[in-house]
Each structure stands twice: as C-alpha cells, then as structure tokens.
C-alpha cells in the first residue's frame, strides 16, 4: 500500500463531476425508499423487496461502477497515470492502493445509503438493516473489484460495466436461472437470506447457499484483482500520441 497513491485516488474520486453523480445515486435511493414507505405504509415486506431489487440490483452496481472505474479509468484515459507508473513502485502496490480506496468508498457510501433507505422505508426491529448491510457490503467489494479491473483492461469500461450491471445483474440475473447462479447480487443476497432465515415474508430469495455465495465472491474478487494487476504491469503507454 502506498499512502500517496491512496490520497491522490481519494482526491480524484471526491473531486469533479463524478462526485456529484455519486451523491445523486444515494439521493435517488432515498427517494425510492420514501415512495416505498408512502405506497406500503412502512410494511417491511415491501422494504425488503426494495432493498433486494432496487438497492442491490440497480443502484449499488451503478455506484460501484462509478467508483471502481473512477479510481483509475480517467488517469489511464488522459495519460496522467504515467506520473504514477514512472516511479520505482511495484505496479501491484499502485493497483492495490487504488482498489483499497475504491472499495472503502463503495462500502461507506453503499452501506450508509442502504441503512438510511431501509430506515425510511420501514424496518422490522433491525432485521432488515442487519441483513442488507451485510449483503450490500459483500456485493460492494465484488462489484468494485470487477469494475476496477474493467477500467484497467478496457478503454470503454464504463459502457461495458453499464451493460454488465444493468443487463447481466439487473435483467438477466432476475429472470434467467443459469445466469442467476453467476451473479454477484445473488451471491451477496445469500447472506441476507441467512440473516432473515425463519422470517419467510421478509426473506429474499438467493439462488445459492451462503457458503457457495461467499466462496464465489472471494474467488471472483481475487481473480479480477490479479487480472487487473497483471494488466497494469504491461499497460502499453505511448509517451505521446
């Protein structure tokens, strides 16, 4: 880990237009939470559906997409990453420092907005909060690592990520059984399913067991991180165009 790289990454994430978008997404979630409460008068069943589908299926991937790609994509795009790479630092250190900042940002933003949304929409005890904070945290790690890797590998990471997030995780992951087994959202939901075990009306449905979900998440996160680091080592850079 390198503190200077981390500070610079944090500055990049918090500055500029991206930061505004990052605030817009949680605001949207809170709005939907308000509507959910208004429509269901605080029924926790509706809250659970909102958290499992909208929060985890749509907003969290988008948030992680912005953060994961934003932590390194713009610098690769405009070439300023050369100031980090032309240093006697292992590329692994640079990649892991940036990824750590990105995952931390996703965790903080993802969990806080989820807690707030569940409280607004209506919880039953703290059951839903506990369940979904766990799932959101797990999904945030997986999603951010995937999008971070995409930003190193592809110049059109945002488009590719958007298609993956909305199509694969959102639409196909919701309806096509085969894909549902290979979905970050389903893996992460297995944790919420376990926490809410015994409360059938609240319990979200996950395609996989908790063990499978955790193992798949861990493998995916490690694999994409290794891929990203390897690509950064040989990232072709024209010193000029």
């Amino acid at each position: 880990m390198n503190v200077v790289v981390m500070r610079l990454t944090m500055r990049g994430l918090l500055g500029g237009k991206r930061a505004l978008l990052l605030l817009l997404l949680p605001a949207l979630l809170l709005l939907v939470a308000g509507l959910t409460r208004w429509g269901s008068s605080g029924n926790p069943d509706a809250t659970s559906a909102m958290a499992a589908n909208f929060a985890m299926g749509t907003l969290l991937p988008l948030m992680c997409l912005l953060i994961g790609t934003g932590a390194i994509g713009p610098e690769i795009e405009d070439g300023s990453i050369v100031y980090l790479l032309a240093k006697p630092l292992p590329r692994r250190t640079i990649a892991l420092s940036k990824l750590t900042v990105a995952i931390t940002a996703s965790l903080v933003l993802g969990t806080i907005s989820t807690v707030a949304a569940i409280l607004i929409a209506g919880d039953q005890g703290w059951w839903l909060t506990n369940a979904y904070v766990t799932s959101v945290a797990l999904a945030a790690i997986g999603y951010t690592a995937i999008f971070f890797m995409l930003a190193i590998v592809s110049r059109s990471a945002v488009i590719v990520g958007l298609i993956y997030a909305l199509l694969w995780e959102g639409v196909l992951g919701g309806y096509v059984p085969g894909i549902r087994v290979l979905s970050v959202r389903q893996w992460a939901l297995s944790a919420a399913e376990r926490v809410l075990d015994g409360q059938p009306s609240l319990m979200p449905h996950s395609e996989v067991s908790l063990t499978t979900g955790l193992i798949m998440l861990a493998i995916t996160t490690v694999v994409v991180t290794v891929l990203g680091v390897r690509k950064l080592k040989t990232l072709p850079m024209r010193v000029a165009e």
Binding site: L8, G16, G79, S80, V82, V239
Partner: peptide, 12 residues
C-alpha cells in the same frame, strides 16, 4: 521522464 501528454493532476 517528461511525457508529451498535457494531462496533469489538474486540481493540484
């Protein structure tokens, strides 16, 4: 290395 690219960390 002095690259030709104009892009710097503009907010610094």
């Amino acid at each position: 290395l002095v690259p030709e690219t104009e892009a710097l960390y503009d907010s610094l």
